[in-house]
Design a protein around this nucleic acid. Sequence first.
DNA 1: CTGCATCCTCTTCGATACTG
DNA 2: CAGTATCGAAGAGGATGCAG
Lengths: 230, 230
Amino acid sequence: MESTSSYGQFCPVAMASEIICKRWTTLILREFLRGTTRFNDLRRGVPRMSPSLLSKRLKELVEAGVIESVSGSKGPAEYRLTPAGEELRGVVRDLGGWGHRWIESKVSLRNLDPSLLMWDMRRSLRPEPLPPRRCTIQFQYPELPQVQRNWWLVIDEGNVDLCGFDPGFEVDLLVRGSLRSMTSVWMGMSTVAQEVAKRQLHLDGDPAIASAMQHWLGLSSFAAMPRRVA
Amino acid sequence: MESTSSYGQFCPVAMASEIICKRWTTLILREFLRGTTRFNDLRRGVPRMSPSLLSKRLKELVEAGVIESVSGSKGPAEYRLTPAGEELRGVVRDLGGWGHRWIESKVSLRNLDPSLLMWDMRRSLRPEPLPPRRCTIQFQYPELPQVQRNWWLVIDEGNVDLCGFDPGFEVDLLVRGSLRSMTSVWMGMSTVAQEVAKRQLHLDGDPAIASAMQHWLGLSSFAAMPRRVA
DNA sequence: CTGCATCCTCTTCGATACTG
DNA sequence: CAGTATCGAAGAGGATGCAG
């Protein structure tokens, strides 16, 4: 029977929760709502989730009609939100909005992750405030182990690339500081100017690019929302 | 480390999901949003949840700042939503709204439960369309075992009481039919008139009360929302 | 009765490794 | 690239106990 996994209630909140409110599922939905469609791209968004569990969750979401697997010419290679899944956008957005408003920064900032941050920054970076040429911006987190310490964003013709190794281009701006400071700026809990003033963030390089950083650095989509806690 | 229970992501969706998207938690929140404050009243709303797990979840929600326990100096402890918890109303409502729109009725109606249904009906019944005297309405589900078969709603001076035993008053209206039919009416998937016409529901007694049933029977708060699936 | 705590069993999850 | 397989650990459910 379905008795174990089911709440045994006809209430729509209970029925929806059986589908949505399982471990990892909201994060998978967040990735879909960002436009991710493929298994290993989803994995990049939920790196601590085991692939077997991701596979299982995808099957559950297909079964529930939230996503569908679009069989490429050879095998099921892509997943997409169904109209039902697309209608979860508001729920996931509001859930995140609540978290942004009410979860203390000291709690959120326990979960720092440079690759998630840099990947988010890559996706939301706005090239327009930058000079109309190729720009290379290096981010350095001195406190991190070697392999996570240096990152490069290369903006060229409106495209943004993220590298975890030196791409070899001349660096136009070096942003150096703690991952915590950089994350709090990206989350809208601080600003570039504040962190620079507190000497938590150091900008070296092209002054025009440095002074425009708050503008080309796309922030978290929740950053503009007023927070209610420290 | 907190690695086990945490997603390890600073994203607000992840942070909020750590608190909200655990088994049973959305249903507990639903009960709070309905105004329930005490342990055993919460239990009535989540009868299949073990009391020890409910106790654990309540502690987690207090810790997260979603509820607070108001220890009366003498009386039993009460729990109340904090302002943060109150701001989850939209999330829980929209989650239920999504479930109502997109989960097939054949799935929802697998989870019939007469005590949850009758308790919901008791809470949302509208006394105004009824005669201004004491009214007793009996609901009978012939297919259920004896102990769940008969229920009485007694409306008197604007108060509604639910009994699982015969209160002894003369019955003004007997509503007889399957729990499935009655539930689908309450969920807004059908109407009293439709079920009566299909002979799934039988009304015996005061014709005025019978013909007004669709009006005094408060429906699920989701019933008015258009559904997208069968 | 209310409001849990304990004990035990069973399911789910996470980490790692491996395959077509 | 897109998943399976395996196995120990953590979490959930059920029964029972117990203090106020």
